[in-house]
Amino acid sequence: MKYEKDKITVIIPVYNVENYLERCLKSILYNTYTNLEIICVNDGSTDNSKKILEDYSKRDKRVVVINKKNAGVSSARNAGIKIATGEYIAFVDSDDWIHEKYFEYLIRGIDTADLVICNYIRSYRSGSVETDDAYRVQSISPIDVLKNKELKSYVWGKLFRHQLVDEIRFSESEKLEDSLYNMDVLLNNKNLKINHVDVPLYYYFVRAGSLVNNIEAYSVLSLAKCFKEYYDKENEAEWKKVLAIEIIKRTLSARYIFIIIKNKDMIRECNALMKQCVKSTGNMKYLILYKLPFLYRAFRILNDPTMLKYEKQL
């Protein structure tokens, strides 16, 4: 293969995933692209995950295991970045898995770029997922990524040039660390060359109790505040507008929860944050939703009727 000489470091944070870990590892080890350094960071697992990792490291020299005290997914990923030696870096979550041509397609896409992104499929059960694997790639801009929820929200499904992210680390104090990491990459490299492989190559496994299913309103608001820091420093109108929309969307979501649980202090905090940004969106829709909370609730329920059940649980 043309690019086989280029090593890809794959960083996998691992915590109590004994039921899914082998599926993840096998999908990586049996990829068509083989020049891999697979750094598995055992973040203090108390189940059989550590033994599974040790067994695989004995069978395949590409598997490197780091054992550390539990400190969260960001800490685990940062530990992996610290010792990565590949020309490229990829992140895979230990309960997910990848297409057999995942790395082959991504490294082909990064030939003329610094970052390449592929599509993904949500899976709610174990087993194979049918996917169209015809190779399609197109160039996109950093601001295109920032506007696209599916492309900007996760660090998996991406291949980064090592030098691009060598000095960037995950926030160990925020739960929505992927969005912040991507924001750092994009805002610090506004002329970044990005290719989008328009093929679903990453399989994101949605399981009950997973972190993304239990994100608290406080965490969402905290992320909005982090974006506000970027917003305050930004001078370019187009970027400022996109950041304002990101802040408003997240704050609307957080306020919706605070209204249900009747936390007046947090409602006021949400309103104050949105008031500072809403004009920059240039969109009357966000002004209306900011002014009329009941309308935002109506939209949420219309799009997902199960929100009524969720409200009762709250």
Rank of each mutant, 00 (worst) to 15 (best):
G209A: 10
N283T: 06
E54W: 08
N263I: 07
E150N: 12
N19L: 12
E311V: 08
I117T: 03
L292C: 12
K7V: 02
E18A: 04
N119Q: 14
S75L: 15
E177R: 08
E236N: 15
K193E: 03
C226W: 07
C277H: 02
I83H: 06
I301G: 03
L29G: 10
C40S: 06
A217Y: 01
L29Y: 13
K275C: 07
K291D: 11
Y56K: 10
R59P: 08
L192H: 00
A217N: 05
N31V: 09
C226F: 12
L221N: 06
G80E: 07
A84H: 02
L180K: 08
Y154C: 07
K309R: 08
S171Q: 04
E174A: 05
T251G: 13
E22D: 09
L223V: 06
K193A: 04
N16T: 04
C40R: 02
K175R: 06
A84P: 03
L146C: 06
Y296Q: 03
W239C: 11
A134W: 08
I248M: 15
S153K: 15
T85F: 00
L302D: 09
S126Q: 15
D133P: 04
L36H: 07
R255V: 06
M284F: 10
K190T: 13
E54F: 07
E311L: 09
Y296W: 13
Y33V: 03
K7W: 01
S179N: 11
G157W: 04
L289C: 06
A217F: 01
D6G: 02
V278W: 02
G209T: 14
E216P: 03
N271S: 13
K249T: 08
N195M: 02
Y296R: 07
Q276T: 09
E18G: 02
R125L: 11
E100A: 15
R77C: 12
V185L: 05
K262V: 10
M183K: 02
D166M: 02
L159I: 02
I245A: 08
F103D: 13
N67S: 15
E269H: 11
P142Y: 03
Y296M: 02
W97V: 01
H162F: 08
R77P: 00
R169L: 14
L151F: 06
Y135H: 03
A79C: 10
E167G: 03
K264I: 13
N283I: 14
K2T: 07
K193N: 09
L25N: 12
D184K: 01
T112N: 13
T85Q: 09
D198W: 02
I83G: 00
K152R: 15
D265V: 10
G86W: 01
T281C: 04
L252V: 07
V155I: 12
T85M: 09
S128C: 06
E311Q: 13
E172D: 14
L295G: 05
P293M: 06
I245H: 04
N263Q: 10
L192C: 00
Y105F: 11
L295I: 10
K249C: 12
I248N: 12
K275H: 10
E22G: 04
E150S: 12
